[in-house]
Design a protein around this nucleic acid. Structure first.
Lengths: 286, 286
DNA sequence: ACAAAGAATTTATCATGATAAATGAATCAT
DNA sequence: ATGATTCATTTATCATGATAAATTCTTTGT
């Protein structure tokens, strides 16, 4: 499942940062002298930016430690409140975590998937994302995705997919179970996305799935339990895994294409407008 | 109003929000179990959440006003610092803006595209995004995009595209000009994405373009000026617009497919190292 | 040896002003 | 009128502790 050498570049040496003249020198003292341009950034933002620069320049990795609050106060010359707000910014962006206690402090943290998803969801809160929009993309992406995946998956990956299918083996008796099964079937797509080995592709697939999942949970979509549709859904998954195992990309693509069409029709038959709400805050422990 | 506080948060009342991504922490009461779900939310996070709930419940729109700092302090029963940190969280997420002066205060704000892009870029900072990854998606999306767009664009849209093409009319004499032209050609794709009318699709196209643009700006990619390639690039754009105007989706798709292939080869031919850096912070006024 | 209690450490929050900066409105000088 | 000035309002930042909470390390008790 690994494509030829695709040079996975990382760690740029000179990777400078936004050249933005954050040029907010921290002269503790005479502020307004040559201040022709207005203050673009608040001080907490400036501090946050400086810390980001620091992370980039030093090539800090997740788990690495940043100076503690008191040291920042001294080194950056800002008040405690300002520093704290800056840390809060970075924490919101998902780039740091703070821990209390001995050995605690501020640590670099890789932005979690959940947080990125949540932040992106906020962006779409004021947009009108329709089911059609989402499926326009899904119908584009997922068939090709499985076509590429065909024959490239190892047994472990295939079994992972089959494990998800297994959770929908029993006929659901309650709406609760039915909902869970639907979520599981969405999970199926997430796994496919991850297996592509393309972080961007995987992320997008997951995002779409998350939006759809929200619909399911909060709008009681898929409420009417339809045995035939359910069985059809299961069948497609089974056949898909079969095609993937056989390395039959054409079939996989066809199966997924058909499924996308069906799923879209199903969803559109229900509600057409996506629930307007912020997604969760992704507290992402770890 | 209420005496100091013990740890109190509103445990997701009403189920409007909360619970998404990552996990379902349906509190059962038993503290320690398979999921060491420690550390709930910090208070600033709780406050931020409450304000989000408020926004959702009241259906507040961009421009609407939120209570000012002092009122929040009183109504929510938290200290000023806590409130400020909460506001900083929301500001970082792009959901509010604060203004000083008379008539100033805290206002709901639609998350700007730039901010969403920057936040998403943070996520990919610690990932290894290769050019191949990006083009895998581009090659999937953009050909179909133009195929759908064919014949659906009004004259204004077409002229918008042509205007961008026009900027690359003159043969560039300096690397500077050459770089600007390349950026303009990327802009071409952004416009196509927007014209789709699909917010999600447009966003993804823009994100890809932004990542590639970063490359161009910071890594001197496309440095060697190649007249033939340049001309070929221009030609494809012209022919594409032509096909779009004629409503010839098949041709449009073919043209774009070819272009994607060429562009990817070009990018990969360079020592394309994806710049590891945080994108700008998107101050995005209005 | 091992588990529970305690101590030490570090961030989190609270509390309380005071001063600075930004900005729209009203006012005043020309 | 019109441009500059002052004023009032509201957030932004600074300053300075004092408590609280969460962890890890250490010391006990059995």
């Amino acid at each position: 499942m690994q494509p030829p050498v695709t040079t996975r570049y990382k760690a740029a040496s000179g990777g400078q940062l936004d050249s933005v003249a954050s040029g907010h020198q921290v002269d503790t003292g005479s502020p307004s002298e040559t201040a022709p341009e207005r203050k673009r950034f608040s001080r907490p933002q400036s501090v946050a930016r400086q810390l980001k620069d620091w992370i980039v320049e030093q090539g800090l990795q997740p788990g690495d430690r940043l100076p503690g609050e008191p040291e920042m106060i001294e080194r950056l010359g800002h008040a405690k409140g300002t520093i704290r707000e800056a840390l809060r910014i970075l924490e919101t962006e998902g780039l740091i975590k703070t821990r209390t206690g001995p050995g605690g402090g501020v640590f670099v943290h890789a932005v979690s998937d959940a947080r990125a998803q949540a932040l992106l969801a906020n962006y779409f809160y004021f947009k009108d994302l329709s089911i059609r929009d989402i499926y326009q993309l899904r119908r584009l992406i997922e068939p090709e995705l499985v076509a590429e995946l065909a024959g490239r998956l190892d047994e472990a990956a295939l079994q992972r997919l089959e494990a998800v299918i297994a959770t929908t083996e029993q006929v659901p008796h309650t709406p609760e179970e039915e909902r869970e099964q639907h979520i599981a079937s969405l999970e199926f797509h997430c796994i496919l996305g991850e297996l592509s080995g393309n972080p961007l592709l995987g992320f997008i697939v997951r995002f779409q799935v998350n939006v759809l999942r929200e619909l399911t949970v909060h709008r009681k979509l898929y409420e009417p339990i339809n045995p035939e549709l359910r069985e059809a859904g299961r069948a497609y998954q089974c056949r898909l895994v079969q095609a993937l195992r056989a390395g039959d990309g054409e079939s996989a693509r066809a199966i997924m294409t058909r499924h996308m069409k069906t799923a879209q029709a199903m969803m559109e038959a229900q509600e057409a407008t996506i629930a307007q709400r912020f997604l969760g805050d992704s507290t992402t422990g770890k």
